[in-house]
Design a protein around this nucleic acid. Structure first.
Lengths: 202, 202
DNA sequence: CCCATTCCGTAGCGATGACTACATAAAAGA
DNA sequence: TCTTTTATGTAGTCATCGCTACGGAATGGG
């Protein structure tokens, strides 16, 4: 199972180091986190970091990928596991409020907040996260349009606007969490935000 | 009126240079904008910049102050000029949607997006903007509590939650605008967001 | 006219950014 | 044991960061 390779084995836990890097990028963002910060917190010297993860951009990409499969996975799960569309979005907002304020890690969402500011040279990093967010809005819209087609929403409900609304609320929850809002405050905001849901077709 | 001073007069328009700096910080953020970027776009050499504006932090502070009195002033105006509280918040969201997508300047709100990412050395800049945002939530809450006291809202309506909700929506609109949402899309989101407004007391 | 004052552009300061050359250490294969 | 392979720590590379010393240019005061 453990494929013994040639050469000297690496002296650090790659997964643990990646987890440390995630926390740094999450809190300070891509440009706010220096290689010196990373090597210090990961307990790895610069050459080892570059050998194990490639350059800073590649490491960041892997961090984002890992984030999506772990901390950020609640969003896809809420939409996939709930049959009722309203329940799916309600659960998504509720879990976002909880996750974004979890004291076990930095506040807010890494995909939303880690590359807001960027120098002209790192515009592509900002673009990569923006593409993820835009793709997410499309996922929302497809689910809502599908719900409309199945009669879960009254005819004529604007799935496009509703999708952008939920995206905006999620991003607002992330920003509020970073500004110090508590889990309880955000859970109540999430509940209030759901009251825009259109009256059921009759 | 023009107080003639001794020495050589400055060869550039201080207000125009400040406006250029505002656009740069607005788009790229505090750390994403270098002194080299600023001197190039402002058409001013580094020593002139430092003589006229102090260091980078001080320049940024002045930019933020100016922003609040110009581009960001619609928010205070909406709350001050509208007697009806619901109309005040509706106008605020509507104008935010318009301002954040105005092609005459970078998308979104400078106070929300210019210092999301920060190195440990510039945490105080992030803090300064965060304090502004948090103060804003308090202004919202006071206006909403006042509306409750005047009978504009049903008894028992949670002004605190409502204030955080509106703050989150505004921040979500800003992020959506930076991600490329159009004015029309955000205006519809703003309208939808207002449907959480509680039914009037009877 | 000369001086004091203020601003100008050039050129460069020390510190830090991302990243790497190099010699060595630790493993597997022959 | 000896070679090959891969990882390690030290100690740098060059570019860019925010910022400034310095000498010259443009003004008003005397």
């Amino acid at each position: 199972m453990t494929p013994r390779v040639r050469g000297r084995p690496r002296s650090f836990d790659r997964e643990a180091a990646l987890a440390r890097a995630t926390l740094l990028f999450w809190k300070y963002g891509y440009e706010g986190t220096s290689i010196a910060d990373l090597t210090r917190e990961m307990g790895v010297s610069p050459p080892s970091l570059y050998a194990a993860f490639g350059d800073k951009r590649t490491l960041f990409s892997e961090v984002v990928e890992r984030y999506g499969e772990t901390f950020g996975a609640f969003m896809g799960r809420a939409l996939d596991e709930e049959d009722d569309t309203r329940a799916a979005f309600a659960r998504m907002l509720r879990e976002a409020a909880a996750s974004y304020t979890d004291p076990a890690h930095p506040a807010g969402c890494l995909v939303i907040s880690a590359a807001v500011n960027y120098s002209p040279q790192t515009a592509d990093v900002e673009r990569a996260l923006r593409d993820r967010r835009v793709a997410n809005v499309r996922v929302f819209e497809e689910r809502l349009a599908d719900a409309g087609g199945r009669g879960e929403l009254p005819a004529g409900v604007d799935a496009h606007t509703l999708a952008h609304y939920f995206a905006a609320v999620v991003q607002g929850l992330s920003q509020q969490a970073r500004d110090g809002a508590t889990a309880g405050e955000l859970e109540r905001v999430a509940g209030l935000a759901m009251s825009v849901w259109p009256a059921p077709a009759r």
